Every structure is written in C-alpha cells, then in structure tokens.
Amino acid sequence: MWLYRFALLLLTPVILLKIRRFQKKYRHYRPKEALGFWPSVSADLWIHCASVGEVLAVRPLIVQLREKHPTYRFLITTMTPTGAEQVEKSFPFAEHRYLPMDWRFSVKRALKQLTCKHLLIVETELWPNLLFQAKQQGLRVDVVNARLSERSFLRYQKFSHVSRPLFKLPDSFLAHAKSDAERFEALGAKKVLTTGSIKFDLAVSPDVLEDNWREQLGSRFVWIAASTHQGEDEIALNAHKATFAKRVGCVAFACAASS
C-alpha cells in the first residue's frame, strides 16, 4: 500500500492540473468535493459511476430498486463533470457528489460527512484508499458489472502482494462474464458471481422509438465509432473515407469520443 501511496504522491501535480482543467471547462464542477470537502449527506445506497457510460448502464438497476423501495435515498458519485450532468438528467431525485481523489486524507474527510451503509461500484473502479476507508467505516461494498481484461489481470497478478489484499476488500463481485469471474477469483476475491452485463438491460426510450430514426435515415449504411480514445478518431475517419469511396452517397458516420 505504501508503494501505491508514494506513486499517488508523485502524481499529485498531474491530478491537481486535471481538477483545474475541469474547473475551467465546466462551470458546475465542484473541485472542493474532489478534495474531500463534501457537504453532509445521508443515503440508503451509494452508487459510484466513473462517468457517463456507467451512469447509463446502472439506470435499469436504479429503476428496479426505486420500484421495490420507493423511499430509498440515493447518492451517486462520478469522477467527471459529464458524468455529473448525466446523473442530473437521469436521476434528479438522487444526491450527487464528485468522488474524492484517492488520497487517504481526502477520502477520509469525505466519508466523515456520509451516513450510509452500502456502496455499489459500477464496473471496476477499485480505488485502494476508497475501499480501505469504506470498509473501515463499516460499509458493505459490492462491485456490479465487474470486468477485468486479460491484460489488466496480468498486471494485477504481477503485483499480487499489493493487489490480492485489494480484491479481498469488496464483499462481492458480480462479474460481467465467466472469464472475468475466474480472473477475480484468481486475484483473491471472496465472493464472485457471474450475472452478465447490466448494460443489456437498457431499454430503448419511447422518445427514440417515436423519432423513428431508421425511417429518417432510409436505407443508408450507418456505423458508429463510440468511446474513442486519443489517436483513434483518425483511424476511424480514414476507415470511413475508404468505405465512403466505395459507397458514394450511402454512408452516414457518427463519432462519439469518450470524456
């Protein structure tokens, strides 16, 4: 753990620069929360979503929980301002906070303002100080839609003296697929279930169906480059140009970059 904390200390200038960029770009961004200065909050369930994709993915679960427990109070945390915007749009009934950066002092400061007994982490946002402090405060921690690629697994396995205690902290992992479950178990996770992806539970909005996009687009071929990373847009655009050259007037293209 000391090695992780030392690396985090070295990265402090980069993290502070990122906070500053968010503050300049998004007026509604609350940098104090990222430093652990949370207003006090009480919730029956705390759900952490890294950004927009996780917020959208967890929507069916929250809808079902509200139907079953109408009085539930939800706290939803995100790392990004775009994720916060999606929370406000999708779950106006929920409290939102920015997750504190994973310095021990900032996490501890934030959790002192929290009254909650259950943390649900969407996908695999396993921040060591967050997990340690949450368990120390008595929270149950479950990871849903948990995924772990072979590449990440090998990286964690290489530093097993650090990663194994980390993977033992959550009470359960609800894995995306059997291969993910096997990797979590190999890294020391206590309880692992294969439940599939909650993203497949997403329902198409009636508004989208009413807009009837296919009728508007006609028979044109449509493809999407979604959640692209730096350098990938150029590859997608070149592929689009090559395709367009063969199918003149028949191609529609959309590119959605990740935040």
Results as ranks from 00 to 15, higher is better:
residue 53 G to I: 09
residue 55 V to W: 11
residue 55 V to F: 12
residue 56 L to D: 01
residue 56 L to E: 12
residue 57 A to G: 14
residue 57 A to M: 08
residue 58 V to C: 04
residue 58 V to Q: 01
residue 58 V to D: 08
residue 58 V to E: 05
residue 59 R to K: 13
residue 61 L to A: 12
residue 62 I to P: 04
residue 63 V to N: 05
residue 67 E to Q: 14
residue 70 P to N: 08
residue 71 T to G: 04
residue 72 Y to T: 10
residue 72 Y to D: 04
residue 72 Y to K: 07
residue 73 R to C: 05
residue 73 R to N: 02
residue 75 L to Q: 06
residue 75 L to R: 06
residue 76 I to C: 07
residue 77 T to L: 06
residue 77 T to H: 03
residue 77 T to Y: 09
residue 79 M to Y: 05
residue 79 M to A: 14
residue 79 M to D: 03
residue 80 T to Y: 02
residue 80 T to I: 13
residue 82 T to F: 03
residue 82 T to Y: 03
residue 82 T to K: 02
residue 83 G to F: 03
residue 83 G to H: 03
residue 83 G to V: 00
residue 84 A to I: 01
residue 84 A to C: 14
residue 85 E to V: 03
residue 85 E to H: 04
residue 86 Q to I: 03
residue 86 Q to C: 06
residue 86 Q to R: 08
residue 87 V to L: 12
residue 87 V to A: 06
residue 88 E to T: 02
residue 89 K to A: 13
residue 91 F to K: 00
residue 92 P to V: 09
residue 94 A to T: 03
residue 94 A to C: 07
residue 95 E to L: 01
residue 95 E to S: 11
residue 95 E to W: 02
residue 96 H to C: 08
residue 96 H to Y: 07
residue 97 R to T: 01
residue 98 Y to K: 05
residue 99 L to D: 00
residue 99 L to Q: 02
residue 100 P to R: 04
residue 101 M to K: 01
residue 102 D to F: 10
residue 103 W to M: 12
residue 104 R to S: 15
residue 105 F to Y: 12
residue 106 S to R: 01
residue 106 S to N: 04
residue 107 V to P: 03
residue 108 K to G: 12
residue 109 R to Q: 15
residue 109 R to E: 09
residue 110 A to C: 11
residue 111 L to P: 07
residue 112 K to I: 08
residue 112 K to C: 09
residue 114 L to Y: 11
residue 115 T to I: 10
residue 115 T to W: 05
residue 115 T to H: 11
residue 116 C to I: 08
residue 116 C to W: 05
residue 117 K to G: 15
residue 117 K to E: 12
residue 118 H to C: 09
residue 119 L to C: 07
residue 119 L to E: 09
residue 120 L to P: 01
residue 121 I to S: 13
residue 122 V to G: 06
residue 123 E to W: 09
residue 125 E to A: 09
residue 125 E to M: 11
residue 126 L to V: 00
residue 126 L to E: 01
residue 127 W to G: 08
residue 128 P to V: 10
residue 128 P to G: 11
residue 129 N to L: 06
residue 129 N to V: 14
residue 130 L to A: 02
residue 131 L to V: 09
residue 131 L to A: 03
residue 132 F to R: 15
residue 132 F to W: 13
residue 132 F to L: 14
residue 133 Q to I: 15
residue 134 A to L: 03
residue 136 Q to L: 15
residue 136 Q to F: 13
residue 139 L to A: 13
residue 140 R to C: 12
residue 141 V to T: 03
residue 141 V to L: 04
residue 143 V to S: 14
residue 143 V to K: 14
residue 144 V to I: 15
residue 144 V to N: 06
residue 144 V to S: 03
residue 145 N to F: 08
residue 145 N to V: 01
residue 145 N to C: 00
residue 146 A to S: 15
residue 147 R to Y: 05
residue 147 R to D: 01
residue 148 L to G: 13
residue 148 L to W: 06
residue 148 L to F: 07
residue 149 S to L: 10
residue 150 E to P: 15
residue 150 E to S: 13
residue 151 R to D: 05
residue 152 S to G: 04
residue 152 S to T: 12
residue 153 F to C: 01
residue 154 L to G: 02
residue 154 L to S: 14
residue 154 L to Q: 10
residue 155 R to C: 07
residue 155 R to M: 10
residue 156 Y to M: 06
residue 157 Q to M: 11
residue 157 Q to T: 08
residue 157 Q to F: 12
residue 157 Q to R: 15
